[in-house]
Design a protein around this nucleic acid. Structure first.
Lengths: 161, 161
DNA sequence: CCGAAAGTTTTAGTGTGGCGAAGTAATAGC
DNA sequence: GCTATTACTTCGCCACACTAAAACTTTCGG
């Protein structure tokens, strides 16, 4: 199989990209001292900008107790901070330590971005637009399919159908 | 920033794509009654066509014992089958099965592929080449960064350095 | 056929992470 | 101010998946 042979056909490219992304994600997670699941939760927090522990429980589908442990790990690793909601001080607001949406996690993504920007110069403007358009559409399709899969899974039940 | 707005800048697109891929991956896994890790292993098997347990252990980085459990789960879920290598009957050859009556991987990916192919027609040949080139390079960079991250993590030590 | 080696499975031990329930702190109602 | 409710945290238990080591089966060499 294509160990380094980076692709010939579109389908293969999709698979390779998917695998590469997943492995990258896991490597990042490990680098951050997190499991893949915790990394994803961190992504949820980062994307939301800030949310309460209860909301995080809802979004991740975890129990309140599990969220405490999750936030503990994230906090002790320095990726989020617990704050009290000034209005309702029972609430614990979880805020990511770095910028929302695109956490500049220890410069890892900066390196990646730099590398990608580096070969960005290889394309003319029209090609760049095509690439961006493609990425946008791919992301949209992935999200749609993800939503569909989740809905199907919920409909068919958690048992093995 | 880009909460659902699917991207304006390249860096954001990278992040969004990454997240979308990971979530898609997990959704597929859940749909198949597998963990994300097992799903990735199944991907390795599917892509290889068939391989021995030992090879799978090597490629996933798992111990032989863990592979037994992994293959057990995959097999009981109906996604692979164990076969004996006729030449060396010590070897267990793992072959993927397109599980009948089970949620079908290929169906999911066919939909995805169709969607992606659907907007593939929006581009001329030169743009398609650019996109493919971009994907190839992105995959390469992701792999490089993954390798680097793993190396760094190993160097800094598993402790909370 | 016997012993060594290779490949996989089994077993015991461990660590992680989740759920559920009780506990603690804060808000709302009386 | 006291009680009920809400929100998070702590605690006990358990399921899962991994590693390491022993066991089992098959193959190869003498």
């Amino acid at each position: 199989m294509a160990q380094d042979g980076t692709g010939q056909r579109g389908e293969d490219l999709g698979w390779e990209l998917s695998t590469a992304v997943v492995l990258f994600h896991e490597a990042v997670a490990q680098r951050l001292g997190l499991s893949a699941a915790d990394h994803r939760a961190l992504g949820v927090v980062s994307r939301a900008g800030s949310l309460t522990a209860g909301e995080l429980a809802q979004r991740t589908g975890l129990s309140p107790g599990a969220v405490t442990g999750l936030v503990d790990r994230l906090e002790s690793a320095g990726h989020v901070r617990r704050t009290r909601d000034p209005a309702d001080r029972r609430r614990v607001v979880i805020v990511p330590v770095s910028a929302p949406g695109r956490p500049d996690l220890s410069g890892i993504f900066r390196d990646l971005g730099a590398a990608m920007a580096g070969f960005g110069g290889d394309y003319d403007e029209q090609q760049i637009r095509a690439i961006q358009d493609y990425l946008v559409k791919t992301i949209r399709v992935l999200r749609e399919q993800t939503r569909r899969l989740s809905a199907e899974a919920a409909a068919e039940g958690p048992g093995d159908g």
